[in-house]
Design a protein around this nucleic acid. Structure first.
Lengths: 143, 143
DNA sequence: TGGTTTTTAATACTCAATATCAATTTCTGG
DNA sequence: CCAGAAATTGATATTGAGTATTAAAAACCA
């Protein structure tokens, strides 16, 4: 738990700056969220319901969106659902996704990022964020 | 209309290979689809309903997904809806998207594609497809 | 601690997309 | 060209993710 002090500080800082309050639910949701790489709201709902049967699904959604605002999470549409990625402890990265088994590998590549800036500048854009997803077959699924 | 012979051939080829049938609805939906860059199913439904009041919304969805299978269209989640991009007449490309006005600029960059292959190979993946979206402010919205 | 403000939980609701299924259309092979 | 098998359509019901509502509860601040 002590490892997560930094992330809780980030949350508190964000709450303080936006006249928001620290609640038991927000603490619990963050504690669970930090244990995962990426989750859906439904998945968190099922997990949290075991210990806290009265937790509301809407609260999960609200809180995960709050985490996005605070920079702790990042939403990503995958299929019909929204995956919330834990980005609190890592730098920006992109995804390699296996179309057969669903395996996800994270990567980052400065050279690609630099070229993105180049492309954007050529069209007069200023990049705020980006999404790069490579879909294919992982080594196991190629056989 | 003669310009679209190639796309109709692609559709017929796909239908033939999958024991599917060529119907009046599929022809009409393709004819309209080829006139656009990107549409939603709802938007097509409203357009087609004017001439063909009995067209079913489910048919639009089914057919657009069929176009995706045939390689004529490509689905893209944007906000709450799914945009179907017309990719029949163009090479693969990626998107620059303005987060303020929604303007979309298409681009392609061989250098980025090459680096993607490199990254994938490093992780043992074989790429089937990819999605790269750069979000930011267009020149007009920067002011 | 009391009072103001925010948050929660339960539920209703919205809306995109899919499932169902009887009636219709397309295609195939004789 | 026609009949029968197979696929498709259209109308509607249903699903399911995510949001809106609101009374009650919790958090915060002086």
């Amino acid at each position: 738990m002590s490892r997560n002090l930094k992330e809780f500080a980030v949350l508190k800082d964000h709450l303080g700056k936006h006249q928001l309050k620290l609640t038991r639910q927000r603490e619990r949701i963050l504690a669970l969220f930090l244990k995962t790489e990426h989750v859906t709201a439904e998945h968190m709902y099922r997990s949290l319901s075991k210990r806290d049967p009265h937790i509301g699904l809407a609260t999960i959604y609200r809180t995960l969106n709050l985490f996005c605002d605070a920079g702790l999470a990042q939403a990503r549409h995958f299929g019909a659902q929204t995956q919330y990625d834990n980005v609190s402890h890592k730098r920006h990265h992109d995804h390699l996704i296996c179309t057969t088994c669903g395996k996800i590998v994270e990567f980052e590549n400065c050279e690609i990022e630099r070229l993105q800036e180049e492309v954007a500048a050529k069209h007069g854009f200023v990049i705020q964020t980006h999404k790069l997803e490579l879909y294919g077959l992982c080594s196991r699924c190629q056989r």
